[in-house]
Amino acid sequence: MKNSIHKIGFIFLAAILLFANRIDGQTNVQVVTKTLAGEEKWVAGMKLEINGENALIHCETHPEQSILYEIEIISKHSEKEKAENDLNKMKWVSGKQGKTLFMRNYIELASGDTKPESNLKVMYHIKFPEGCPLTINNYFGEIKVENTQSMLKINSEFAGIDLINAKGEIEVESKFGDISGKLLNGNIEVTSNRANIDFENISGTLKILATVARINLRSLSQIQSLSIEVEKSEISIDAGNEFRYFLDIKNTELEKPSWMTFDPDDKAENIHKVNFIKLPGNPLIQVKQNIGTLKIN
């Protein structure tokens, strides 16, 4: 009996300690959310431009001839009053300027206002027609774009980018925000500064300029041309033997598959050509790299 009491006491004490630890490691926060929703009629030639800050931007196409939007401004703080007060400091504006529908969020401080203490975020849920060109600029946060058919232009700083099923002219520039893409088809141009790139199922032409990045490219069988120019990066290309390869690599550790043999006419030490003689008309993969690793499968 005494043993049992001791056991129960021990379990009780352990539970208290565990609970105390949980309280110490976690915080309760008050969440205030302001939701704004609206719809704009879309006509051919009309563009959409989003300028976000600390924004989670999710855009996808729909069959309607309209731009539908739902914006959530979220403020989190341990005190409800402060969360509410800070929520008003985050502004969201939208309006038409010529043929462009603009959306923008920013922090506005009135005279005497203090910097917001709360965690402020803005979530964009946008539905737009396939033919509508889209431009997104975001500073911190994240960007997700799905099923676009027209021009897509993204500029991100510290915001991750996720592209799914995008066609047409695609231009992406990112600093510190990792880029991932699936089912991309068109003229794709990516500029990355310390942003990793992970692409699969790519068709059309792809050009990558990168500094300090981990680049992973898979399922490239439909690609017409691939050009990569990088520095201090790790590249992995999974394309197969159906391409010509032109490798201009310096200070780079190359890992190549068994089927890959360099054409015999190579003159410069750092330049390697593959399949130029065997498959002269096949699409070209060019890699220009200084410092890093290059893995070809």
């Binding site: 110490d24 008050q30 704004l36 300027q97």
Partner: peptide, 23 residues
């Protein structure tokens, strides 16, 4: 006037909730 931003109309509402996050 072409470049003037014509504000879009929208509806808005505010909601409150509570959540627990890792410190």
């Amino acid at each position: 006037s072409y470049f003037l931003i014509v504000p879009a109309n929208h509806q808005s509402n505010i909601s409150y909730s509570q959540e627990t996050i890792e410190h």
